[in-house]
Structure formats: structure tokens, C-alpha cells
Design a protein around this nucleic acid. Structure first.
Length: 594
RNA sequence: GGCCCAAUAGCUCAAUUGGAUAGAGCAACAGCCUUCUAAGCUGUAGGUUUCUGGUUCGAUCCCAGAUUGGGUCACCA
């Protein structure tokens, strides 16, 4: 519709003033609520063609539009804004289209669809997931769903950083202090158990540093020479040298972590199509780096460490292999990228990784390019903002980290408490109740995180639990449940819901609802272009807010006019469907009752 | 210090990517359940969009500078 108007405006200006205007000079937007009309054309940019007043220009263009666009019957002018009124029939038509499709707004993939690979989550296996990972996982999953809804083929992938100095730290501490403790023996979740030893390592390390400083060493030297850190380094070297005992312990502890992660992923409702492990990919990366050395792309120093010099590209020097031959993060990422492109015909590669790694991905992109991979430059770093606490950034060493499992469990408790107070689920079984508590708790958490612009830093206050009223997930879930309740009542009463609405008179709320509803396909598209679940969240909220007003002001079941009642039922059903579909894109479930 | 990013109501976030009188929720206050689920609805109050300039018909949005906060510049990931 907007495109049609835009083209007609261009034609109008051509006939009126004999000038060609550029397409993006014509602004067509939805009319603001406080004015009458549906679409608004801003005429200010055309004044230099018309050489007339804004009102006159708008009048002239408006007359032509009304004559050339069938569904346009009237217009009004406020200053330089030409407000166009679109016929009711058009909206009813649009609504019927929306009502007829279960997946309204979604585009199904076909043979020509592009393949988008999305990497997200990508945890280290030395500690459990925290709030920062939650934002990553929710964004990654949601963006994947949004890309699918835009007709792409999507491969969700996870690169598990299961190797490196950080894992060795946990292993070392466990060896020293663990006394053979296992998840089974202690009843602790595996990832939490391993995480505890990571913290213990840090404590031992700090103590050694303090002792060395007391003995007269500088802080820098102390950090470098502490026996325990050297032992960890030696462990990493042994690991890369395939030392059997080291590998055994590593495998054992990683397995504990995976069991724990799987549980967390399951509660979060995220999943992956293809999982890569750094322990498999880093050697490919190392070979690539060594090839780079041979081809003169990278340089090897006397101590045999390997560097990339990116100073000509405006960046720094970057290490790719340590002097003891072990690999770093970047080495692995090179290998992983290569393997992925040979495994899949990737058209777009999206890395969901925090904005603290912007520099890392600039470098990675450049390195891949230098290694001769034409897709190196194409990788897209979906860089999202951090989650901050009122005190600032989360710091694992200071114990301010909000653990993912604890957070979810806490949310479920709150949901249970609220729900029990309201007592609406009293005739449900305990399993059904628990299922809904979880659904609501996760709805609150996910919506809270996904409704904010991914690029922005966001704040989470653990002191105040996430709200269930207002602009929240549960509010939207509640509206959905209400709609289902009405639909159940209709079904019980044997009232059939029409599948097609004739041209009836609409009240203000009804037409407002339809006008919001039919923007959904555009919202899905924009959310895909901008990689922004927040756009979907905002849309659903707007829709639901409007629906609740409608629900309050008008009755559905008690409407005496049969035609109108049938229409309202269909409207409610379609809105319910759209809420569900929108939330599907966010990875949030909706309950039939709550 | 170099580079990058942000700053909107007391708090958490929006603002159709340069358009009309900057909107929601929370918190505060005042109302609405004999009626399809009150996790709802209505109203009141709350703003020099950090500051100073510039660009233009028009700036929260673009440019320059300043202030504040954050990130990053590792043989960490």
C-alpha cells in the first residue's frame, strides 16, 4: 500500500510540476493517532518543485491520489502533512487475509532460499551459564526463528569452547582439592561443580601472587611466575600433546559440564542443529595459521610464536600461536569457520557474540580474508550489548554473577506465588500447574530481555524481581489466555466462528486493532533486516494493549448482532494466533489458561 | 592515552531510521469487578531528549566539540 501511494505521488508530481522525484524523497508513513487518516504523505520536500504553499501542494497531490487510487476516498491536510483515509473495505480485506492464514506474516523457505548459519551460545566449559549467556541464547534463538520466518534456511550452531587454559584451571584445582568429588557424589549440577573449582583455582592463584609480592616480586612478575599458573600452562601443553591422563580428566569433567548445560538449554528452550567443539576445530585452525606462515601472510618469531601484523589495515598485531605452540581463541575461530563452510553452503554467517568482541571479529574477518577465503569479509558479527547489574558489570571473581539456573528457578517461584494467590488454576493437576508456572516465568524473563534493543546495554536488578504486570511477557500471555477462554466459551455454546468477514461497519477499536494486526508481515520483515526481536516484542505489546481496551469496552459473546459477534470472534481468534506467532519468534510459549 | 559505543520522565525501556503536541510500563495518587479471566481497564502527575554550536522548511535522530558512563587495545576467552 505504501509503495503504491509512493509511486502515485511520484506520478502526481510529474504531471503537476513536471519534475522527477527520487523514490526515497517520498515519505509515506502511518498517520499518527491524534489525526484522522491512515497514511500520511509529507509534502515539505516537494515545495521546491511546486513553488506553492504546503497546503496548496498537499491539496493538489491529494486530489490526484484520490482519483487514481481506488481504495482512497478522502484526505485532509494539516500543515504540510497530507493525511489519506483508506476505505473500510480495504481493511476488511486485509483482515480476511490475515485471518485465513495460520502463519500470517511468515514466509516459507523454498529451493532458492539462502542458507543462514547462526552461531550463538558458545560457552566455555569451565563454569556455568549466567545472565549474560541468557541474553546471548535468547537473542540467538529468536533471531534464528525470525530469519526462518523471513524465508531463510537456518542452521543454528554452537561452538563449544571445550579446550584451553581456562579448562585446565578447573581441572588443576579439582585435582588438588577435589578428593574425587563428582556430580553424583555431591549432588551438584555438573557445570556448577566444575565452576566451583574454577573459582578455587583463582583463589589459590591469588594467594600465590600475594606471597610472591610479599617476597619482593612486582605484581606483574608474580602473576607470571606463580607456580600454579605455570602448572596450568603445562597442563594445556600436555593436553595438546595428547597426554592420556590429562585427556581422561578433561573428558570426564567436560561430560559433567555438558550434562549441566543440556539441562539449562532445555529449560531455556533453546537448541542447535549442529554443534562444533573447539577441541576438534583448533587443529584445523592451527594448520591454517601454519599455512599462513609458509605463504608469508603471518610471521613467526624467534621464540616460535606466530603473529598477524594488521597494522596496515589500521589494527594491531595479533597473536595466533603461543611460543609453546598452543592455540588461542583466534586460532580456533579460523578453523571453525573453515570447517563450517565446507560442511554447509553458507550464504550468510551470523555470529551472536557480545559487543566486547567487536575488535576480535574485525580481526577474524580480516584474517580469513588474508587466508584467501572470499567469505571472510562477509561474516556478520551480531554484536549485542551487555547485561549490567546496578553495581555495574557482572564479575565472576567478585561473586556478582547472576547464575542462569538460579535465576530461572527464582522466577518460577515468583510465578507460582502469584498464580496461587490468584487461584485461577485450582482445578488443574500439579503437573499442569507447574508447566504453566514455568511458562509464565520464562515468558517474563525472555520478554524482559528481548524487548530491549539488542544493541543496547541493558540493566537487570536482581533485587527487584521481574514484573508480571504492564509491558511484560505474562501480561501478553494473559491476554492470549483470555482470548482462548472466550473461544472455548463460543465452542461450548456451539457458536461457529466465521472464516470470512463481509463489509460491515467497524467501531474505532476494531479498526484500530485491524490496522495494527496487518502490519505484522512488515514487522517480521524489519525484524529480520535489523536482526531485532525487540521489534516483534514491541509489536505484540501494541497489539495486546489495544486488544485489552477493546475487550474492556466491548463484549464479544453477548453482542446481539450475529454478524458482528461472528466478526469479533474471528478478530479475537486471529489476534490470539498472531500473539502466538509473534511469541514463537521470541521463543516464548503461550498458555491456554493462566 | 588511542580507537569504539552509549546518554530520553524518579526507575526500566519506546519513538515508523530527518517529520506533527517525544510515548509505554513500573513506582505515586484517584477511580472501575452481579457482566466473555482485575496478571486487566480509565484518569492525574511526571521532560530544556546531558551540554554548546552547526546543517535545514523541520533535529531525540545527521555533523563538530565538551561532559559523564561503558567497552576494547593480553602468549585470557
Amino acid at each position: 500500500m505504501e509503495i503504491l501511494i509512493r509511486n502515485k505521488v511520484i506520478e502526481a508530481i510529474k504531471t503537476l510540476y513536471g519534475q522527477d522525484v527520487d523514490e526515497n524523497q517520498v515519505q509515506v508513513q502511518t498517520t499518527r493517532k491524534e489525526f484522522t487518516g491512515d497514511k500520511t504523505v509529507v509534502v515539505f520536500p516537494f515545495l521546491r518543485f511546486s513553488k506553492k504553499s504546503a497546503e496548496q501542494t498537499a491539496e493538489e497531490i491529494g486530489n490526484i491520489l484520490v482519483n487514481t487510487i481506488e481504495v482512497l476516498s478522502e484526505f485532509n491536510i494539516v500543515k504540510g502533512f497530507l493525511n489519506l483515509v483508506i476505505d473500510k473495505g480495504y481493511w476488511i480485506n486485509q483482515f480476511n487475509t490475515a485471518a485465513a492464514e495460520e502463519k500470517y506474516g511468515f514466509k516459507a523457505p523454498d529451493e532458492q532460499s539462502e542458507l543462514v548459519m547462526i552461531e550463538y551460545s558458545s560457552p566455555n566449559t569451565n563454569k556455568p551459564l549466567h545472565l549474560g549467556h541468557i541474553r546471548n541464547n535468547l537473542l540467538g534463538y529468536s533471531v534464528s526463528e525470525i530469519m526462518k520466518a523471513n524465508g531463510n534456511k537456518v542452521v543454528k550452531t554452537n561452538i563449544v569452547n571445550d579446550r584451553g587454559i581456562h579448562i585446565c584451571k578447573s581441572m588443576l584445582a579439582w585435582k588438588r582439592l577435589g578428593n574425587g568429588e563428582t556430580p553424583e557424589s555431591s549432588g551438584k549440577k555438573g557445570d556448577h561443580l566444575v565452576g566451583e573449582y574454577y573459582v578455587k583455582f583463582d583463589q589459590l592463584y591469588k594467594k600465590e601472587i600475594a606471597d610472591l609480592i610479599a617476597g619482593g616480586l612486582s605484581e606483574e612478575a608474580a602473576k607470571e611466575q606463580a607456580p600454579i599458573i605455570n602448572e596450568a600452562r603445562e597442563m594445556l601443553r600436555l593436553w595438546e600433546a595428547n597426554d592420556a591422563a590429562t585427556r581422561d580428566l578433561w573428558q570426564r569433567m567436560n561430560r559433567w559440564v555438558y550434562t549441566g548445560f543440556d539441562e539449562t538449554y532445555k529449560t531455556l528452550g533453546v537448541n542447535f542443529d549442529k554443534i562444533y567443539y573447539e577441541s576438534d576445530t583448533y587443529t584445523v585452525g592451527r594448520d591454517e595459521v601454519l599455512r599462513g606462515v609458509k605463504e608469508g601472510i603471518f610471521e613467526q618469531m624467534d621464540d616460535s610464536s606466530v603473529w598477524a601484523n594488521l597494522e596496515n589495515d589500521g589494527l594491531d598485531r595479533k597473536i595466533l600461536l603461543r611460543s609453546d605452540g598452543t592455540s588461542v581463541y583466534m586460532t580456533q575461530d579460523i578453523g571453525t569457520a573453515k570447517i563450517r563452510y565446507s560442511d554447509f553452503p553458507i550464504d550468510h554467517m551470523i555470529y551472536v557474540v557480545g559487543n566486547e568482541q567487536i575488535y576480535h571479529f574485525q580481526v577474524l574477518s580480516l584474517l580469513l580474508d588474508k587466508l584467501g577465503y572470499k567469505w571472510g569479509k562477509d561474516l556478520y558479527h551480531f554484536s549485542y550489548g551487555m547485561v549490567e547489574l546496578p553495581q555495574g558489570r557482572m564479575k565472576s571473581r567478585e561473586g556478582t554473577v547472576v547464575d542462569a539456573d538460579d535465576l530461572v528457578a527464582g522466577m518460577v517461584d515468583v510465578a507460582r506465588k502469584v498464580s496461587e494467590e490468584l487461584g485461577k488454576l485450582d482445578n488443574y493437576t500439579n503437573e499442569e500447574k507447574e508447566r504453566i508456572y514455568r511458562m509464565v516465568a520464562l515468558g517474563a524473563l525472555k520478554y524482559f530481555i528481548l524487548k530491549v534493543d539488542p544493541k543496547k546495554t541493558m540493566l537487570f536488578n536482581p533485587e527487584e524481581s521481574i514484573d508480571f504486570n504492564g509491558n511484560t511477557g505474562p501480561f501478553i500471555q494473559y491476554t492470549y489466555a483470555r482470548i482462548q477462554s472466550v473461544l472455548r466459551k463460543a465452542a461450548d455454546a456451539g457458536i461457529e466462528i466465521s472464516t470470512h468477514t463481509p463489509e460491515i461497519e467497524l467501531n474505532d477499536k476494531e479498526s484500530a486493532l485491524i490496522k495494527i494486526l496487518v502490519t505484522f508481515p512488515e514487522v517480521v520483515k524489519e525484524a529480520g533486516q535489523n536482526h531485532s526481536p525487540a521489534l516483534v516484542a514491541n509489536f505484540v505489546y501494541e497489539l495486546v494493549k489495544e486488544f485489552n481496551q477493546f475487550y474492556h469496552d466491548f463484549t464479544i459473546m453477548n453482542e446481539p448482532d450475529v454478524e458482528i459477534r461472528k466478526f469479533r470472534l474471528l478478530l479475537a481468534k486471529t489476534i490470539g494466533q498472531t500473539i502466538k506467532n509473534g511469541f514463537l519468534l521470541l521463543g516464548i510459549e503461550v498458555p491456554e489458561r493462566m
